[in-house]
Structures are given as C-alpha cells and as structure tokens.
Design a binder for these strands. Structure first.
Lengths: 203, 203
DNA sequence: TAGTTCCGAAACTAGTAGTTCCGTATGATG
DNA sequence: CATCATACGGAACTACTAGTTTCGGAACTA
C-alpha cells in the first residue's frame, strides 16, 4: 500500500488534469454545454478518453469540475464598512459569473444534476459552503461594527447575491457593468434599513 | 390561401397540442430534462414524433413551450401596502418555481438556449416582459402612495425576486415555505430604506 | 525483475435526436 | 361528389454521442 495517497504503479500526470480542465473550459465557452462532446475534449486536450473517465465519472461531472476548478475561497479584506464589503463581494460574484460560458454551464448543471445526491453534496461542499462562510464573515464584521442590529440569514443573503447576478445575466441578458454597485447598495439598504451614503436617487 | 391563418388541407388537432404539452410536463417531473426523450413523449401522448416536430423544432423548444404554457400574466390586487404587494408577488413566484421539475427545466433551458436569438426573444416576450410589467405596477403603486422616493429599476427588482427563489430552491435545496415572507420583508427594507412593520428581528 | 497503474489511440456498444416515408384521415374548395 | 393539401400514427432510417473496453507501451514501487 505504501504511503497514504501514493498508489503503486505509474502516477497520474498533473499535466493531463490541467489539459482536460483547459480544453473543457475552452469548449464550454465556444460551443456551450449541450455542444460539448467528450471526443472534442479529448482531442483538444491531446489525451485519450480513458484518461478523462479515469478522472471524471460523466460529462456533467467533468464540466462541473472544470467550471468550479480554481474558484478558490478568497477571503475579502475588511474595507471598513458594510457597503464596501458588499461591493467587493458583488464584484467578485459578478466577475465569476460574468463569463457567459461559466454561468451557462452552472445553469445547465444545476438543472441536470437534479437529485443526484453525490453531485449535490459535492457541489454544496466545494462551492456553496465556502461562499456562505464568506458572506457570514462580512455580516458578522458589520454586526461587530454596529452596522447591523441582528445577524441575518446568510443563506438568504447568498441566494440574493448569486441569484440576482444569474438572473441579470441570463434572463435579462444585461451587461455586468455597474451591477455590483447597484446590487451592493440594494443589499445594504435591505440589511441596515437605511439608504447608503452618496447618491440620493433610488436603487 | 383562404382566410388568414387558415391553411388548406386537414387542420391541426388541438388535442394533439394538449397531449404533447401534458406528456412533456409529466415526464419532466418524472425523469427531468436530461432523461426526457422524444420517443417517450410521443408514446405517452399517443402521437407520432412527426406531430411533435411539426410543432416544435427541437427538444429544448418543446420542453420550453410545455413549461411556459399557461403561465398567464396575472395581475395582482392592490393589497394597499408595498409589503403586502411584495408578499403576494413573492408567493406567486415561489409557487411557480416551487415545483422542482419546473425550475430545473427552466435552468436547463436557460443554460442551453444560449444565444439562439429566436428562443431568447420568445422567452423574453412570453415570460419576462409581463413579469417585469407586474413588478413595475407594484412599484408605481407604492410610489403613488408615497412609500417610495424614486421608482427603482424594475429589472433589478425582477432579478432579485426570481433569482433569489431559484438559488434558494436549486442551490441551497431549501424548502419554499416561509421564503416568500422573508424575501418580501427583505425587498421592502431595500426599497423603502426602512424596516417593515411587525417582527423586530433581522431579515 | 515483477506487479501495478498510467498513457494515447482506436474499436466497440447502446441509446437518442431528428428525418423520412407510408397508408390513412380530415377538412376546404369547386 | 371529387380533388387537393395537410395532418395523423407508426415505423424505419440516419447521424451522432456518451461511455466502455482493449491494446501496446511507459512510468513508478517494491
């Protein structure tokens, strides 16, 4: 058995992993999820299909992994104000989802993963939980500052931020420019019950 | 050519349209979009595949049409307050999307329709525009009452409501119960810059 | 050296979207 | 009534794709 995590035989080539992820991302951007084929990914990556299926059980999981890959759970610097933190958060989310290919892939996957418990659990663990934790940090910082009366439901806040960005981009097909600030001001008003400073006009 | 809209030859049977829609909805609920097959729809509906393709150019369009079918643009009674109107609105949206099959189908379709201009235009015209109009009515009523200072961006409000419900159900897999009230109170605070009446705790 | 796992490549299976044709049914037109 | 155009269910058919298996060979461990 050798050392933990070190199996006998030839070890996997990290470059193969990277090539698969890169090819999947490129093709998702070019042809979308429905147009994505395993043969095309293998050809673009210069690997055999066996190498792909050794790593990913199915097309959806591969696309999911390629999309999620590298979405590291950044921590946000304390900007000193709730509005500043919210703006940074909204900009990060809009940046992640601003690429139409990424948001389209996530939509397709959310629709198709369905009740497959393993995938859902993986998705929640890998993506959602760290994000909610980030939201919670920001909210708790604001509560410590006295900007918030009571700690709100972090999952609701997360749903509002992510869902709004998704709908803005994919339902209304509006440009992401300016969305982060609008959304941050909206969130700030909702959370503090007070209009944010600067700009007297509406949302 | 005869009368406008009336072609020569045997006219289409409305019952076939209805059977296709019904079969598609049932199967979407049972097996999801990815598991949906044209042969199964044809068999369940008791029609030939030709009859389906005479009406719908592709599987995605068929599923889309079946999902959207019958989503009439209700008008909401004036409850007398912004919070009441928002609650009614959120309950309606949560009700529409509360069926996991419906929301999953919409997610898949949004992901796959992509840049197909015809489908996007149809979707915007049939679903999104009437909904945004409803939102605008509610917001204008509130402005007339003096509850709102300036009319906010109706498309942003629409994105927040629909996107939040979607994320709540499909990302977090939380039950729709209680979501409408939470969301309405959140929206109310964001729009008016004041905490809604009743219940002193946070969002 | 022996055993295990990896690699690219190719052949293969199984299943689905979408098309085409058949014989028949149905309604409009003359 | 006769004709024409289209719709109908059904079945056969094409083209394509997900996923599996197999191959000779390479890389690593023990």
């Amino acid at each position: 058995m050798a050392i933990e995590g070190q199996r006998a035989g030839r070890p996997r080539d990290d470059r193969v992993d990277a090539a698969i992820v890169a090819a999947t991302r490129e093709l998702l951007a070019e042809v979308g999820y429905a147009g994505l084929t395993m043969d095309a990914v293998a050809a673009r990556a210069g690997v055999g299909k066996g190498a792909i299926y050794r790593r990913h059980a199915a097309k959806a999981e591969m696309a999911f992994a390629a999309t999620v890959y590298g979405m590291d759970p950044r921590t946000f610097a304390d900007t000193g104000s709730l509005l500043g933190d919210l703006t940074a958060l909204a900009e990060a989310v809009a940046g992640d989802l601003g690429d139409p290919a990424a948001s389209r892939a996530i939509m397709s996957l959310l629709g198709e993963i369905g009740d497959d418990t393993a995938s859902v659990a993986q998705f929640l663990k890998a993506c959602v939980e760290p994000e909610v934790a980030r939201h919670l940090e920001i909210l708790e910082r604001a509560a410590d500052r006295g900007e918030l009366a009571a700690p709100p439901d972090a999952e609701l806040v997360h749903s509002v931020v992510g869902g709004t960005v998704m709908a803005w981009l994919l339902v209304h097909h509006r440009a992401p420019d300016g969305l982060a600030e609008k959304l941050a001001r909206f969130m700030h008003a909702a959370l503090t019950g007070a209009a944010p400073p600067r700009e007297s006009d509406g949302v």
